[in-house]
Amino acid sequence: MAEAMLIARGLHAYYGRAHILADVALEVGAGEVVVLIGRNGAGKSTTMKCLIGLVRPAAGEIEFAGYRTERLAPHAIARLGLGYVPEERRIFTDLTVAENLEVGRRPPRQGLEPWTPERLFRLFPNLGEMRGRPGGRMSGGEQQMLTIARTLMGNPACILLDEPSEGLAPVIIEQMAATIRDLKAHGVAVLLAEQNLHFAGLVADRAYVIEKGGIRYSGSMAELAADEAVRAAYLSV
């Protein structure tokens, strides 16, 4: 593993009295694609929200790019170079594609080639053809591409991708996998939350298995694929 750029230790989070995360720990190295895999309700999205600061962890430490971030506001964490692509996509439906990208725009980051709308339209040709279209009048797959593009406009060094394959057609899922591999080739690290083991296998280097708010297993993607027992215990439906 390359030098760790995103580290979480001992994260605990609550919604009211419900204990959602119990002692979650994980690491993502520079340029690495890591999957956080688990069933519905296992705590994947909450982990992601803690990392970007939308949910305040009750205990634990988060380190990103050498800064302690668990007490920072979301915008401050984002400015350090952590991108967040939420599960529900949360496109600004009243804004056009170009305006959605504008919201995400941040100054260039050292060591990374800056993203521009033109460069993103090469990565997502569909979007280039609908720059003036309101986000609310796009298909689910197009919206998913737009959320990723919007986050890339912030020139993140690492992005949190929350279930990007959810609800997409198989063809689009293949495209999504190709996109993630592209990002990795551009030096962007990715933490992916997924319940689709097949999709995770297409893109991820390493995996953490999460169940009932705790990490139950960690290893390389190949090791997880070989470990029948773990898959049966935590991932089969």
Partner: peptide, 20 residues
Amino acid sequence: VLVRAATQDRDMVAALGVNQ
């Protein structure tokens, strides 16, 4: 543009690095 975005979803705007 930021104002219109924030009218729809403040948290998402913050997560994109905008100081609300």
